[in-house]
């Protein structure tokens, strides 16, 4: 200890300290992120055949934009490390392959069946570690807590997807789509991978259990009949204003004309 205390005024002491501090924070960060990565990787394992089939599908359907080795081109991003979850979401919802280049990939009927989607996912996940398709345990809404889900949803999701989850506008033609009618798995994968303009909500940010709560809340919104009558798309005051200016005014007009039809 004596040696240490003598050296503490050494001109290089500050640099050594700084290096130690950087090493420590960097190391902690690596450990912290590794826990997420580890969690993400533990799940479905694909066979080598699946990956091989997937590569064939990839070359013939995806490589034009994403490159022959999925390394990315000017027209599409690299897929190394995006994980099986991203493939399952993008291909499973029909967003990929895109119909055309645009501000955002649009929802459309899927082009590949489940088997082919799995093969593509197998190939892409073989390129680098990434989030995998969620386990059924986290998709089971009977285990979720809708009230906690509502809290998380309103604090994290409603800004873009609207309080009732019916979607909303973003800048320059981009938009957040409706969440009504989206499958549990795809909602989970979207949170995990952040498709299009959506931010990633990783497991440190929103834990798998919390993700399940959010899904539970959204599913409860789907089955809950709107308590106040027709929900008018859950779009808020604009839809209500439109209704009073059309239907409301229309009915009033009919009665005013009727009441004064025998006037002087």
């Amino acid at each position: 200890m004596k040696a240490l205390s003598q050296k503490r005024r050494h001109p290089l002491a500050a640099i050594v300290l700084l290096a130690l501090a950087l090493l420590l924070t960097g190391g902690l960060y690596a450990v912290a992120t590794a826990t997420n990565e580890a969690k993400a990787e533990t799940s479905t394992t694909y066979t080598a055949t699946q990956a091989q089939e997937g590569e064939k599908l990839f070359i013939s359907n995806c490589a034009t934009c994403h490159g022959t080795n999925a390394e990315g081109t000017a027209d599409g991003p690299s897929l190394v490390g995006v994980g099986a979850a991203a493939v399952d979401f993008q291909v499973g919802t029909g967003r990929m392959p895109m119909q055309m280049q645009g501000t955002q990939a649009q929802l459309k009927p899927g082009q590949f069946n489940e088997e082919q989607t799995d093969q593509l996912a197998a190939y892409v996940s073989s390129l680098g570690a990434g989030p995998s398709v969620p386990e059924d345990e986290y998709l089971d809404v009977s285990k979720g807590d809708a009230a906690n889900g509502a809290k998380i949803f309103l604090a994290n999701c409603a800004m873009c997807h609207n309080a009732a989850g019916v979607g909303g506008a973003l800048t320059r033609g981009k938009f957040a789509p409706t969440l009504m009618g989206v499958s549990e798995k795809h909602i989970y994968e979207a949170m995990e991978t952040g498709p299009q303009n959506m931010p990633v909500f990783n497991d440190a940010n929103i834990t798998p259990e919390e993700k399940r709560d959010v899904i539970t809340y959204l599913k409860s919104q789907e089955v809950n009949n709107s308590p106040g009558g027709f929900a008018l798309g859950s779009l808020g005051p604009v839809a209500e204003g439109l209704l009073i200016w059309t239907l409301g005014l229309g009915i009033i007009l009919i009665f005013t004309v009727w009441l004064t039809s025998r006037s002087a």
Binding site: S226, G228, L243
Partner: peptide, 15 residues
């Protein structure tokens, strides 16, 4: 009629 048929200001959605 409007009030019994159409929801207005679904405050429970907003939180």
């Amino acid at each position: 009629f409007l009030a019994s048929t159409f929801t207005i200001n679904a405050i429970w959605n907003y939180g």
